[in-house]
Design a protein around this nucleic acid. Structure first.
Lengths: 242, 242
DNA sequence: AAGTGGTCTAGACCACTTC
DNA sequence: AAGTGGTCTAGACCACTTT
């Protein structure tokens, strides 16, 4: 899967925004200028701008141009599909991952059966990781990776980036995820592992899918409420959700 | 602002998915067939499908077709930009709104000054509403609407849908919002109004903008943790956030 | 009037899946 | 080989903003 011209242009513009070559509050070069700059058609430039628009990086204003928006400095957003490793790298945080458990199983662990009641898959890999920020426990990630398509998970992949292993080594195409965020009562085990001050915990439950719509991963992320922050960008829709 | 052909097609397909004319797990008619059906070019059909794709309603699979996804029956999602009134209507819930306060002010209330430290605007309308679900308090919404562009807010608009009033009566174009979700310690006032069992509350803070990038609204939504649920759909990005 | 973005088209060629 | 989606183009016309 090689990136399209439109995506390459979007990445280039995003990079220039990050490097302050295009400044927040100012307008990008016009679509005609970008068309000449990148040597493509205008529709291709427009597809690139549409990607940046939907990410909240620019706002298009008819008759005027495309303004660079201020996304703010997000302290650890959980929006989108990104692994902890990717976030840590791109934000340069002092984060650490401790793998607590990595085992194959032929039965869906009870924890997952409870939170994903309609789930049928039962063979897979159970993974438990504690995430530390500034040497303090912040998140307990429990993953269940489906076998197939994932037969093995090297400890190094669990330690670093699962997604990198799935995409680069196994050639799987990670595509989308559904997530829910709720607040739950913490078990004694959780209280201890996350050093919670009271018995509440934030649960981010997600089910992730490959591009052929196969589910491949369930994740239960237990966050220390005091350290939890979810950042979102949303555009007003003219299509009602299902 | 009239809808484009692509948006009309997307709305039509979404409607057909909702009415089970196109079923979850099956493929939509091919792009060529849709092109004939709607009497447009293929690119226009593709723009319609892209809208449904980004909402998580379909998944495109090369060589096969566009599969209808199961979004699940979300119990009160807070994703996207939708007003409580719109959600209530589209989901047919037993919800009620009590307007507790609606006053003009020349100073940004301290509550907002604290949660949005960089905010400069000070003249506006303060609105406080309690949302009840099944006759139990679920959310306390505190809004600050900027003057200008919003000079007045009729009680009926506060009672029903603010967005409907802004878009239909004032002709404003609501475009996007940034939100953060955190867990905070509840004040005694909040404990009482939301009938909280303990002293934690979920805070959804959002800043909303018009299509010309003017901010027009700050919202602090305090949720009873026991009734809070946030549902999200996310696609894997090939562009890094800013 | 000139420049900006918004929409739409008809056609081309490619990559992937299925038969 | 035929059908599917993925990409890209060159051009047209419209709506809005600015001068």
């Amino acid at each position: 899967m090689t990136d399209s011209k439109a995506t390459l242009i979007a990445q280039d513009i995003a990079e220039k925004i990050r490097h302050k070559q295009f400044k927040v509050g100012s307008f990008l070069p016009s679509e005609n200028q970008l068309t000449k700059l990148y040597g493509t058609s205008r529709e291709t430039v427009r597809k690139a701008l549409e990607q940046l628009n939907s990410l909240g990086m620019i706002q298009k204003i008819q008759g005027k141009g495309s303004m660079v928006l201020d996304l703010g400095r997000y302290s650890f957003p959980i929006s989108g599909i990104e692994s902890f490793a990717e976030l840590n790298k791109s934000l340069g945080m002092n984060a650490e991952t401790k793998v607590l458990n990595l085992t194959k199983t032929k039965m869906l662990p009870g924890l997952f059966a409870e939170k994903f009641p309609q789930e049928k898959q039962n063979e897979g890999i159970y993974l438990e990781r504690l995430r530390l920020l500034a040497n303090e426990p912040a998140v307990l990630d429990c993953d269940f990776l489906f076998t197939p398509p994932i037969a093995e998970l090297p400890l190094s992949a669990a330690q670093n980036s699962i997604y990198q292993y799935l995409e680069n080594d196994l050639g799987l195409e990670v595509s989308y995820a559904t997530k829910t965020i709720t607040v739950e009562k913490a078990t004694e085990n959780l209280r201890r592992k996350l050093a919670l001050e009271n018995d509440m915990v934030v649960l981010v439950a997600s089910r992730s899918f490959l591009s052929d719509t196969t589910p491949f991963q369930l994740t239960l992320s237990f966050h220390n409420p005091a350290k939890f922050k979810f950042v979102d960008f949303a555009r007003r829709q003219n299509i009602k959700p299902q």
